[in-house]
């Protein structure tokens, strides 16, 4: 071939293990289009019934939080202890709440 081969775009693969469970990230595949990505994802990540449902997403379409931001970005969660049940006292006599 005259020109170098164009590489196939990267897709992230999410598998749902069982009905009712959430989809979880499994890995990635290279594929030319969405249908091709689904087929490759099935062959690579679901050879043993690991999935009843698959999602493929172009890797370039994912926006992720960055490790540098981990402090300030998630900070608001740290000072709201009242969001957890342990924050509240229950009168002594109450055994089962």
């Amino acid at each position: 071939m005259d020109s170098p081969e164009r590489s196939w775009p990267l897709w992230e693969v999410f598998t749902q293990g069982k009905d009712g469970e959430p989809h979880q990230h499994a890995g990635s595949v290279h594929a030319t289009d969405a249908e091709h990505a689904l087929q490759n994802a099935r062959d690579v990540y679901a050879r043993r019934n690991e999935g009843v449902s698959l999602w493929v997403v172009p890797s370039a379409a994912i926006t992720a939080s960055t490790p540098e931001d981990v402090g300030p970005f998630f900070d608001p969660a740290n000072d709201k202890a009242y969001r957890h049940p342990q924050f509240y006292r229950v009168p002594k006599g109450v055994k089962v709440f």
Binding site: M1, E5, W8, T32, D33, H36
Partner: peptide, 16 residues
């Protein structure tokens, strides 16, 4: 496998 890879790209281009 070169022709298979080329065909897959050509098909995707055509679909798009």
């Amino acid at each position: 496998g070169a022709w298979v890879r080329a065909a897959a790209l050509a098909y995707a281009d055509k679909q798009a």
